[in-house]
């Protein structure tokens, strides 16, 4: 089956033998984007979280056929070092990771959260960020999520001001 995917802004056309191959395999093994991690393979831990058309999905449990014609964003596509994404910035400020293995999944889930909700309450975080971290970085993570939301609010108000001033 031919699959067309836009991954981190780059268009790919892939010939896939088994359309039920997990998207995670495609991203890691065919596109060589190793930031997205394999944890459980059963949609239980969230290490493989990435975005498909802006929605967080667990790519270990997402057949590649469902991504055909869609936009995929992985941790590599969030932003770069020169212009970190609010989530990356907040993670750096709070030195969140310990071993780091679970972090890309948490960061992608958080990026999806603050794109929809710039003022998440602790309850919103408890409901939506349900990935698993074996190093138990949850305490720093919560602070970083609130900080990322704050940075996103700043970014949005700045861009609103720029638009009002006629700047792009």
């Amino acid at each position: 089956m031919k699959i067309a995917l836009k991954v981190n802004g780059e268009q790919h056309s892939l010939e896939i033998a088994d359309e039920n191959t997990p998207l995670l395999w495609i991203v890691r093994d065919l596109l060589n984007l190793k930031g997205t991690k394999f944890g459980c393979g059963k949609a239980a831990c969230g290490a493989c979280t990435l975005h498909v058309d802006g929605e967080a999905v667990r790519s270990c449990s997402y057949a590649v056929k469902f991504a055909d014609g869609k936009k995929v964003t992985t941790i590599e596509g969030l932003r770069n070092e020169e212009a970190p994404h609010p989530v990356q910035q907040a993670w750096l400020e709070h030195v969140v990771p310990q071993c780091g293995y679970c972090q890309p999944g948490f960061m992608m889930a958080t990026a999806a959260l603050i794109s929809k909700n710039q003022e998440p309450t602790d309850e919103d975080i408890d409901n939506n960020i349900i990935n698993i971290c074996r190093c138990a970085t949850y305490y720093r993570m919560r602070k970083a999520i609130h900080r990322a939301a704050e940075l996103e609010r700043d970014r949005l108000s700045l861009s609103t001001k720029n638009i009002e001033n006629g700047e792009e």
Binding site: A43, K116, N117
Partner: peptide, 18 residues
């Protein structure tokens, strides 16, 4: 929920891998 919803894990058909 808004970000972690049924469709985060459940797709349109059974996933026999996971």
């Amino acid at each position: 929920f808004s970000v972690t919803k049924c469709a985060t894990c459940h797709q349109e058909e059974n996933n026999l891998n996971s």
